[in-house]
């Protein structure tokens, strides 16, 4: 059975290669910072289970200090010039898209066809992690295809991967940091405290007020916690079930569904949803790290109003 461990070893080796290539990159003034940063990530993937909790904590502290004190630079692997890329693009034409299309194709095959496969009663892959395992397999297939089809140097996937990793920089690790923060917050009872404040002090005496408080609360709470999954149980348990369903007799399927979608409006507006909002800014080399959030805010606010209206109209039909 293919498990998550396979994905971790692959990722560990990739980050280890980024570290080694960073160390040899004399064009980057801060190359040792980059080498150490990606090296620590590699250690986490390859040996994280053997470091112990405090060991992992120290590793995390190391990552934060390297990033926080500006020891990360941007590597400059020797690559093609813009003019060369234009002529390569003309030469290869649409063949360039084949590996890019291979990726979703293999992911889809993995998720839809390979996931149910069993060999002698044992599933081919860990069912809970089928998407990530399929993605890892798809990357291997697509990189192999691209190497054959586009005849690039064999080190180029790793060198170019490092270039992109340096482009994203510390933001690459932020989503995982925030996931860990969510766990510590839960341990400290932060969610419960905010939930208590929301459910105690907000007006919920009319149907429209209660619907608005629940939807806007979901969005606001999601903005503070960084994801709607953390907000949903607190506010649904605190407001939706006792008041919207219990008192006003609303349809729980409509309320649950639109409550979650109201939370997603919040996700679009918070830097704490880093993988959706901050990583793209880094990837697209935008000088304002909040540029993507700013582009999303009008849609998010309008959609929040839509969700309030839909819940008010759809949840209470008899």
């Amino acid at each position: 059975m293919i498990k998550l461990g396979f994905v971790y070893v692959l990722a560990g080796l990739m980050f280890a290669a980024f570290a080694v290539f960073s160390a040899t990159d004399r064009a980057n003034r801060k190359r040792w910072g980059n080498a150490l940063f990606w090296g620590l990530v590699a250690v986490s993937f390859l040996a994280g289970d053997r470091l112990g909790d405090l060991g992992n904590g120290v590793l995390v502290l190391g990552l934060a200090l390297i990033a926080g004190f500006g020891f990360l630079g941007r590597g400059q692997p020797i690559a093609t010039s813009p003019a060369e890329r234009v002529s390569l693009a003309e030469r290869f034409g649409n063949r360039l898209f084949l590996p890019a299309l291979m990726l979703p194709l293999v992911v889809a095959i993995g998720v839809l066809l390979l996931k149910p496969v069993q060999i002698a009663g044992v599933p081919l892959m860990d069912l809970k992690q089928a998407t990530l395992i399929s993605l890892a397999l798809a990357v291997i297939v697509a990189v192999a295809l691209a190497l054959v089809l586009l005849r690039q140097p064999w080190t180029s996937p790793l060198q170019e991967g490092r270039r992109l990793a340096d482009t994203i920089g510390w933001a690459a690790l932020l989503p995982q940091f925030l996931a860990a923060l969510g766990v510590v917050f839960a341990l400290a009872g932060v969610g419960k405290a905010i939930g208590l404040l929301t459910t105690t002090y907000l007006p919920v005496d009319t149907r429209l007020a209660a619907v608005s408080v629940y939807c806007i609360g979901m969005a606001a709470f999601t903005m503070l916690m960084g994801n709607a999954f953390a907000a949903f149980p607190v506010l649904t348990g605190g407001i939706a079930l006792p008041i919207l369903v219990g008192h006003f007799g609303g349809n729980p399927a409509v309320i649950g569904s639109l409550g979650m979608l109201s939370g997603f409006c919040g996700t679009l507006m918070t830097p704490l949803a880093a993988n959706f909002n901050l990583v793209p800014s880094a990837l697209l080399e935008l000088p304002d790290r909040y540029a993507v959030i700013k582009a999303q805010i009008p849609t998010a606010l309008l959609m929040l109003i839509v969700n309030v209206v839909l819940m008010y109209v759809l949840a209470f039909r008899q």
Binding site: A11, M14, S44, F45, D49, D53, L59, G161, L164
Partner: peptide, 25 residues
Amino acid sequence: AFGHAFNENRFVTSAYLVLPLVGML
């Protein structure tokens, strides 16, 4: 506690496995 949770959430960062493909293309 943070280290433990960080280690449990490594799958979040493993999505960057696509970087070599994208970079090479």
